[in-house]
Simulated assay, not measured.
Amino acid sequence: MADLVCGVDEVGRGPLAGPVVAAAVILDPRYPIDGLNDSKKLTEKRRETLFTEIHEKALALSTGRAEVEEIDTINILQASLLAMQRAVAGLSVRPDHALVDGNKLPRLPCTAEAIIGGDATVACISAASIIAKVTRDREMVVLDGKFPGYGFARHKGYPTKIHLQALQELGVTTIHRCSFGPVKRLLQTAGGTMLGNDEAARNKS
Score class of each variant (00 low, 15 high):
P15L: 02
R94V: 14
K57D: 14
K57M: 14
R13N: 06
K57S: 14
R46V: 07
S39T: 13
V8Y: 01
L82I: 11
L77M: 05
L105E: 02
K41W: 11
T49E: 06
Y31W: 06
G90F: 09
E69I: 15
R107A: 14
G12A: 03
G64S: 10
G35K: 00
E67G: 11
A87Y: 09
S92A: 02
I71S: 12
K40R: 01
I71Q: 11
L105W: 05
R65S: 09
L82N: 06
D72L: 07
H55P: 02
E69C: 14
I54R: 04
R94C: 13
G7Y: 02
G64R: 08
K45E: 03
K57H: 15
K40A: 07
E53H: 08
A17T: 10
D96Y: 10
A114R: 00
G7L: 01
R65W: 13
L50Y: 13
I71E: 10
E48I: 05
R86Y: 15
G35H: 02
G14Y: 12
V11D: 00
I33Y: 01
K57W: 15
T63M: 10
R30N: 07
L77I: 10
E70H: 04
V11K: 00
E48H: 02
G102A: 10
G14T: 13
E67C: 09
R46M: 08
L77D: 02
K45F: 05
Q85E: 06
E48V: 06
A60W: 09
D38P: 04
A112G: 11
R46G: 01
D9H: 09
A24N: 02
S92N: 00
E56M: 13
G35F: 10
I71T: 14
E56K: 12
A89M: 08
G64F: 13
A23P: 15
A89F: 07
A112K: 09
G64P: 12
K45Y: 02
A89I: 12
I115Y: 00
A17F: 02
R94G: 07
I115R: 00
D72E: 08
L91H: 02
D9C: 05
I54E: 06
S62L: 01
L61Y: 15
A66L: 06
L61V: 15
E53G: 03
A23M: 15
D34C: 06
L61W: 15
I76D: 03
P95Y: 11
A22S: 07
P95R: 04
K40S: 05
A114M: 03
L77H: 02
L59D: 04
N103P: 04
L82V: 11
D34V: 13
E67W: 12
